[in-house]
Every structure is written in C-alpha cells, then in structure tokens.
C-alpha cells in the first residue's frame, strides 16, 4: 500500500469536510473526533447525482448509527465508511483508507 501525505490533522476540523487532490483525483476528507481518538474518512468528492465536485462541502452527521455525509446539492446521504448511498442502493462511491501518524494525515493510494 502506498500512503500519500495530505496535511496535518489540525488543517481539518471536527465534522467538517475538506477537499484534497491526490494524483488528479478529488477526495473529500472528513474528520470526526471521538472521545479517545480522531477518525478520518476519505471518499470521492464527486457527487454522482449533482454531477459536481462538492461532497466535501456537505453536512456530516449520523443516520441509524451510520456516519454519513449529505450532499449539499440534492441532499442524498452517503455512508462515510463504505461510500454506500442511502437513497440509491445502486450507487456506491469510492472510498480510501486513511491513517494518522504523529498528527499527519495519510490516504492509501495504489
């Protein structure tokens, strides 16, 4: 696995999305602070319904216990863990693994 450095964790804010560009691919990063540790989710920034690179600008939340991002355009929800769209089972967004090392955020690319 090839880990690509993105930014320091302080550049990301709790429950707010941020876009990053990795090998020409737009990735939406979401930071969620849990009691013990920080989670970083990475999924495609492309909204397949609105057809624009905007998912990083949606609202983060949870529905039935799943962490989700709501598209800012037409409000579809995507599971942050696996990219599944809650409104359309045929639609699954690409997701990436992430890790934090000494406060630095990395995304796995191949």
């Amino acid at each position: 696995m090839n880990w690509k450095y993105i930014c320091h964790q302080d550049e990301l804010e709790n429950e707010i999305g941020t876009a990053a560009l990795v090998n020409g691919q737009q990735i939406a990063l979401f930071r969620i602070d849990e009691a013990e540790h920080i989670k970083i989710f990475a999924l495609s920034n492309w909204d397949p319904f609105g057809k624009a690179n905007v998912l990083s600008r949606g609202i983060v939340g949870d529905l039935n216990g799943q962490p989700v991002i709501a598209s800012p355009l037409y409000k579809q929800h995507f599971n942050l863990e696996n990219g599944h769209c809650l409104e359309d089972e045929n639609c699954i967004l690409p997701t990436w693994q992430t890790k934090i090392e000494n406060g630095d955020v990395f995304v796995a690319v191949n």
Partner: peptide, 19 residues
C-alpha cells in the same frame, strides 16, 4: 457553529449546479 451550516451559509454564498 460552522459545522451546522448548510453549504450556502458555510461559504456565505449560494452553491450553483456546478459547485
């Protein structure tokens, strides 16, 4: 408050169809 805002409020502008 910032994480509560819809994209329009978060960027103090109205998002259009192309982002």
């Amino acid at each position: 408050h910032v994480a509560l805002q819809d994209t329009n409020d978060r960027y103090l502008a109205n998002m259009q169809k192309d982002g």
